[in-house]
């Protein structure tokens, strides 16, 4: 009992967002024609869980993320965060994009403090900047400018910029897509341990089957555009996971079949 109580006090205060996507459809107007992108997507993401959206390139995964972040509004259906409709961006839902998109005129520290500055919290919560930089291992590069960073360091800085806001929902749009293999593998496990320590809800878009299976608790496989949910794979494996785990290999085969690539593997 004592140990259980101690464990409970150690669990972080931040609680993940309870995300609910209900019958969402979306389309773009292109050259006067309507291009459907998402078709009737319904998905519930439990607070504190890690869900990956897996699908072919250009299928509309990123569009779904922009809707979740509140950057765009869906044509049909609704998105709820903790039961409230998502009508605009909110600092509790932070996005990490494929490109780090650090502001080149600010140092790493200046980029990381951006969220605090935007909400007038720099004076009261400045210690979070240092904490976030330490968390991603960039505390020694606080005064560097973005053009002085490697790709992996820049993406770490972008991650720190998100984490400094203590997000309840971390939205990641292929955050490791442009990194080299080694950096990618390191950061996959780093993000998983950040998520396990912080307790936020994590939503990851990726087209890398292995990455989705290594990181997420549930993998939502999507179809070609207009995207629908083809299947939801439950990955009931403890962390840290290993690439060659036979259960993961079986799931990978299943995911590739769903993506129409079963025969090539």
């Amino acid at each position: 009992m004592v140990t259980a109580a101690a464990a409970r006090t150690e669990t972080p205060l931040a609680v993940g967002t309870d995300l609910s996507i209900r019958g969402v459809s979306h389309a773009f107007a292109l050259d006067g024609k309507t291009l459907p992108v998402l078709q009737d997507i319904s998905l519930d993401v439990a607070p504190g869980s890690f869900v990956a959206l897996l699908g072919p390139s250009g299928c509309g995964k990123s569009t779904l993320l922009r809707l979740v972040a509140g950057l765009d509004r869906p044509r049909r259906g609704e998105l709820l965060g903790d039961g409230e409709p998502i009508v605009g961006p909110d600092p509790s839902r932070v996005v990490v994009f494929q490109d780090p998109t650090l502001y080149p005129w600010r140092t790493v520290e200046g980029n990381v403090r951006l969220g605090l500055e935007a909400r007038g919290l720099v004076k009261t919560h400045y210690d979070r900047v240092g904490a976030a930089l330490r968390l991603v291992g960039l505390d020694r590069f606080a005064s560097a400018y973005p053009h002085q960073l490697s790709g992996g360091m820049a993406q770490r800085a972008a991650l720190a910029r998100a984490l400094v806001n203590d997000p309840r929902l971390l939205i990641m749009d292929e955050p490791l897509g442009k990194l080299d293999q080694l950096t990618r593998m390191t950061m996959q496990s780093e993000i998983v341990s950040l998520w396990r320590n912080a307790g936020f809800t994590a939503l990851l878009v990726t087209h890398d089957v292995e990455e989705a299976l290594l990181m997420a608790e549930r993998v939502v496989v999507m179809t070609e555009r207009p995207a629908r949910i083809a299947a939801v794979l439950e990955v009931e494996k403890p962390y840290p996971r290993h690439r060659n785990d036979p259960d993961l290999v079986a799931l990978r085969q299943r995911a590739l079949e769903l993506l129409g690539l079963g025969a090539t593997w």
């Binding site: 509140g70 950057l71 961006p89 996005v95 935007a118 909400r119 806001n165």
Partner: peptide, 10 residues
């Protein structure tokens, strides 16, 4: 994208 970043950060 610079605007998107800032908007999601409040």
């Amino acid at each position: 994208a610079y605007y998107d970043i800032a908007r999601t950060l409040g």
